[in-house]
Deep mutational scan, measured.
Amino acid sequence: MTLTLTVPPGAKVRVRITNENGETTEIEVEPGETVTITLPAGSTVRVEVEVVDPDGRKRTETFTLKP
């Protein structure tokens, strides 16, 4: 399973991925970048995406991906 994120110009994104064992991976994606994350097959993962807009506003979306 893959997750692809494209960050709009001016925004910053931090992604936290937590697996079933509670292990967390965190990455930051710079403005204008596209990143593809390969998620472990057969695992349920929690993905938290934090977006910081150019004006400093933050918003966070959290979702769970199941196999």
Rank of each mutant, 00 (worst) to 15 (best):
I27H: 11
E30N: 07
V52S: 03
T64N: 02
V29W: 14
R57D: 00
T4A: 11
V29R: 10
T6H: 09
T60G: 00
T60V: 09
L39S: 08
T34A: 11
P9R: 07
V51H: 02
N19D: 05
V35D: 02
E26S: 05
E28H: 07
V45Q: 05
R46V: 14
R16K: 06
D53S: 03
I17P: 03
V49F: 02
V52C: 04
V29T: 09
T60F: 09
T36Q: 04
G32Q: 10
E23A: 05
F63P: 15
T64P: 15
V7Y: 15
K58Y: 01
T4Y: 14
P67A: 13
V52T: 14
E30R: 11
R57E: 01
E20T: 05
V49L: 04
M1Y: 12
T2P: 03
V7C: 08
E20M: 06
L5M: 13
V52R: 04
N19Y: 10
R14T: 11
F63Q: 15
V35L: 06
R59W: 15
P9H: 10
L65K: 00
V52G: 01
L3N: 03
P67Y: 15
T44I: 09
V51S: 02
E61G: 02
E23C: 11
F63L: 10
P31H: 06
E20R: 07
A41Q: 08
T38R: 04
N21S: 09
T4Q: 08
V13G: 03
V13M: 04
T62R: 02
E26R: 07
T38N: 09
D53H: 04
E50P: 01
E48N: 02
E28G: 13
M1Q: 03
R16Q: 05
R46D: 03
N21C: 14
L39T: 07
D55S: 04
I27V: 08
K12T: 13
G32E: 08
D53W: 14
E33I: 07
E61N: 02
V15Y: 04
M1I: 12
T64G: 00
P40W: 14
P40A: 08
E48S: 04
L65P: 14
V7T: 03
T2N: 07
P8C: 15
G10N: 06
T6V: 10
V13C: 06
G10Q: 10
N19F: 11
G10F: 03
E33Y: 09
G10D: 05
E30P: 06
P40G: 10
G56V: 00
M1D: 05
V13E: 01
K12Y: 05
T60I: 12
I37H: 12
E30V: 13
E48C: 03
E48W: 02
I17T: 12
A41C: 15
R46C: 09
G10Y: 02
I17K: 07
T24K: 09
L5D: 02
D55C: 15
N21L: 05
V45I: 07
T38G: 10
T6S: 09
P54K: 13
K66H: 13
D55Y: 04
V7F: 14
T2V: 07
S43V: 13
T6E: 12
E50C: 03
T36F: 13
T44M: 10
T62Q: 03
T24I: 07
E28C: 04
V45L: 10
T34E: 07
A11R: 01
G10M: 09
R57L: 02
T34Y: 12
T18L: 07
R16T: 04
P54I: 04
T62E: 13
G56Y: 00
T34W: 14
P9D: 08
P67K: 01
A41L: 09
K58A: 03
R16S: 06
D53M: 14
V35G: 03
V51C: 06
K66L: 14
N19C: 13
P31E: 09
T44G: 02
G32K: 12
G32A: 12
V13I: 03
R59G: 00
G42T: 14
G32M: 13
M1H: 11
T24W: 07
L3D: 04
P8F: 13
P54C: 13
I27E: 09
E26L: 04
E50H: 02
R57V: 07
E26H: 05
E23V: 08
P8K: 10
V13D: 02
R46M: 11
M1T: 05
R16W: 11
V52D: 01
E26D: 06
P8R: 10
T44N: 03
I37Q: 13
E26T: 05
R16G: 05
V15G: 06
M1A: 05
P31W: 05
E50S: 04
R59E: 01
R57S: 06
S43W: 10
L3M: 04
G32H: 12
E23T: 08
E30K: 12
K66S: 14
N21Y: 11
T64D: 14
R16C: 04
E26W: 06
G22H: 08
E48R: 03
N19M: 12
S43E: 15
V49S: 01
E28Y: 03
R46Y: 11
A41I: 12
V47K: 00
L39A: 13
E28V: 03
E48F: 02
P54A: 10
E20V: 04
D53A: 03
V29C: 11
G22V: 11
V15C: 08
R59T: 05
L3Y: 06
V15N: 00
T64K: 01
P31C: 14
V47I: 06
T60S: 02
G42M: 11
T25C: 13
E48V: 04
V52I: 09
P31L: 14
A11L: 00
E33D: 10
T6L: 14
E26K: 06
P9W: 07
R16V: 03
I37M: 06
E20S: 05
E23L: 05
F63T: 15
D55M: 03
L65M: 12
E50I: 04
T18G: 09
K58E: 00
P54S: 06
P9F: 09
R59A: 01
T2F: 12
P8S: 10
P40V: 12
R46F: 08
E28L: 03
E48A: 03
P31D: 09
T24G: 11
K58L: 03
V35Q: 03
I37T: 11
V7K: 01
M1K: 02
V13Q: 01
G32P: 12
V51W: 15
E20Y: 08
V13W: 01
P67Q: 06
I27Q: 11
T34V: 13
P31R: 10
P31F: 09
K12H: 08
G32R: 12
S43Y: 06
P67E: 04
L65H: 01
T44V: 06
P8V: 14
T60A: 00
T4N: 05
T2I: 12
E20W: 07
L5K: 01
E26Q: 07
P31V: 13
E50A: 02
E48Q: 03
V13F: 01
A11M: 01
R57I: 04
P67T: 14
P31K: 12
A41W: 13
T6P: 13
E23D: 07
T60N: 01
L39C: 13
E50K: 01
V47G: 07
A41S: 10
T62K: 02
L5T: 07
K66F: 15
R57Q: 05
T36Y: 13
